[in-house]
Design a protein around this nucleic acid. Structure first.
Length: 426
RNA sequence: GGAGAAAUACCCAAGUCUGGCUGAAGGGAUCGGUCUUGAAAACCGACAGGGUGUAACAGCCGCGGGGGUUCGAAUCCCUCUUUCUCCGCCA
């Protein structure tokens, strides 16, 4: 969400940005929004005048009543009633226009960083850097579910019976490995100076509508029946929600938080649930990081954040690469975004395991997250990034550490969390 | 789940019964200044937030959120949220 004042002042920049994102159909919205804004301000001024008049006349009624000049007071009451009649239509119009303006403002994309590569869709995303050598062993790497089943580490059949498609039972050492990854990732982030946080796993509708659009909400969020509560799709929802409508003190910045939560997603639309695997599912667990910081620091944090993810994966000897989202693939709220992708020796390509985003002040503006300034308060910058989402990362882990005999080498950093176990054998 | 009490600005807090110079007193904290070799104290000033407009002033919104009554609402009514006390239930 942009600042309306910015749109008013630099409509050409906003339009150019829309073109860069290949959303030309949104171009007319810019002029529409400027026109709406002018009309709203006009209404506001007229309303202010009427309200001022009402205030003075009402006050004088108070004085007249005290002096028992009832007739004069009644005369003035009629005056105010007339003003109120005018105000009613005016206020209604203003409200309708503001609603319309807000709706459009939500759709106008955030100004992307100059460094973002221009491209239409995800096919034009740009590889930034590779870490560790992507190896393909001599022997065949089976599908991850087959690997896990052989290790008696997964039971999808029972899960389907109990909860349906898109759920899983992890069992034995694989379940333990899953927890080990989460715990290791938690400690990893704590060692980077982040504050560990366990947030609510359900949030109210007003928080949901604050952090996502209606369409996203419909496609992702599970609602609790009979309650004003939704299961979170990521802990970012409750973590950013924590800051809604707050004015932060400079000395408390930056907020660097790492949170654990299960995540629940309907995954309605686009790709849907993968039948056999645990790549895309309704419920998974995730360690997340978020940063709320001064505007001038957000790019510095952005670089740091995705490098943490890279470091975490390489510490487990999983080859990764960073892939920058091009302008057309970048979500409207984001200034810049980089995915971390892990190597799949089976598919002989990289696949997404994390996503790091700098939202600039767009999310903060939408949610009212401000910093107390010397003279004026201003909006903070917000960032979020996946530390690790174990079910998906387990795919990378087992594929990259699978031995010819079907066993899995446990990366050294995880062994302390596995009771010293070095190899998971069938 | 039941009964009761409460929510005022960074914190404390008056005002609510009885609607009207409250367009929110007072205190503390914080920031700026005077004084001082420096500090403390004292004194002076600034001080919730939002938005519009202006050369500047003024004016508008704002007392947990939303709605209502009224010429006029911090104050009366409805509703939601949160906190506290008591009872019940329960990991």
């Amino acid at each position: 969400m942009l600042d309306i004042k910015f749109v008013r002042k630099y409509p050409e920049i906003v339009k150019e940005n829309i073109r860069k994102k290949f959303q030309d159909h949104k171009l007319p919205l810019v002029d529409e929004v400027i026109e709406l804004d002018a009309k709203i301000r006009e209404d506001k001024q007229e309303g202010d005048k009427l309200r001022a008049e009402r205030n003075t006349v009402s006050n004088s009624i108070g004085l007249l009543m005290r002096e028992k000049k009832i007739d004069e007071a009644n005369e003035k009451k009629k005056q105010v009633q007339a003003i109120n009649l005018k105000l009613e239509t005016l206020e209604k119009e203003e409200e309708e226009l503001s609603e319309k303006l807000k709706k459009i403002m939500m759709v106008i994309p955030n100004i992307i960083d100059p460094s973002v590569p221009i491209g239409k869709d995800d096919s034009e995303n740009v590889e930034i850097e590779k870490f560790l050598e992507p190896k393909v062993p001599e022997y065949e790497i089976p599908y991850h579910v087959d690997i896990l089943e052989k290790l008696k580490g997964i039971d999808l059949e029972s899960a389907r019976k109990v909860a349906g498609n898109g759920f899983y039972y992890l069992t034995g050492n694989i379940a333990r490995l899953h927890s080990a990854v989460i715990t290791y990732a938690r400690d990893f982030m704590i060692n980077k100076g982040f504050t560990y946080c366990i947030p609510p796993f359900m949030i109210r509708s007003n928080v949901v509508t604050g952090v996502m659009s209606f369409d996203e909400m419909d496609a992702m969020m599970y609602k609790i029946e009979g309650e004003d509560l939704y299961l979170i799709g990521t802990s970012e929802h409750s973590m950013i929600g924590k800051f809604i409508d707050t004015i932060l003190d400079k000395k408390d910045l930056p907020y660097t938080l790492t949170s654990y939560s299960p995540c629940f997603r309907k995954e309605k639309g686009a790709h849907g649930i993968e039948e056999r695997g645990i790549y895309r599912i309704h419920q998974f667990e995730k360690q997340e990081m978020i940063v709320v910081c001064e505007p001038e620091d957000s790019m510095k944090w952005f670089e740091k954040l995705y490098h943490y993810t890279v470091e975490l994966f390489t510490s487990m000897q999983i080859p990764v690469r960073t892939l920058e989202c091009c302008s057309g693939d970048l979500a409207d709220l984001k200034v810049k975004s980089i995915d971390v992708e892990a190597w799949s020796p089976r598919q002989k390509k990289y696949f997404e395991v994390g996503s790091c985003s700098n939202l600039g002040d767009a999310q903060a503006r939408r949610l009212g997250i401000r910093i107390k300034g010397e003279k004026e308060n201003y909006f903070a910058h917000t960032l979020n990034n996946t530390v690790v989402a174990p079910p998906r990362m387990l795919i990378a882990l087992v594929e990259n550490h699978l031995q010819q005999d079907g066993s899995i080498n446990v990366p050294e950093v995880l062994r302390p969390y596995m009771g010293g176990l070095e190899v998971i054998k069938p």
